[in-house]
């Protein structure tokens, strides 16, 4: 859920939208926002699954320190979605365990 108006931050003036793909589904994101924000605004809370027990993981520290939020972005795994901004036509995939870069 986005915070469009806030008593201290004011109205959200960001108008530019970009389209990104998450696991094959197209979603809209605000230009320049962090990937995790776009995912969260669209109700997506799971970023990856662990290697052995295949358990879901999502954002934990929010500032690029813990790597719980990593996903495969444009073919590159282990991208910290909490500190990486979206780009138009970015392709994002839920990361399963340890993945190899493929492009």
């Amino acid at each position: 859920m986005r915070v469009d108006n806030h008593v201290i931050l004011g109205k959200d003036e960001r108008k530019e939208i970009v389209e990104i793909q998450v696991d094959g589904k197209t979603i809209h994101a605000k230009k320049g926002e962090m990937i995790i924000a776009a995912l969260m605004a669209n109700g997506i809370r799971i970023n990856r699954y662990t290697v052995k027990k295949k358990e879901p993981r999502g954002i934990f520290c929010g500032i690029g320190q813990c790597t719980d939020c990593v996903m495969v972005v444009n073919g590159k795994p282990n991208v910290r979605t909490c500190i990486t901004p979206v780009e138009d036509r970015m392709i994002i995939k839920t990361q399963y365990g340890v993945e190899r870069s493929n492009g």
Binding site: A37, E55, R57, C61, I63
Partner: peptide, 22 residues
């Protein structure tokens, strides 16, 4: 480890900087 458990800092970064509710 469930998604939805996070640091308070992560939560406030989401609301105050990213403008999204965690």
């Amino acid at each position: 480890t469930l998604p939805g458990v996070m640091g308070a800092g992560a939560a406030k970064t989401m609301t105050n900087v990213n403008r999204v509710l965690p």
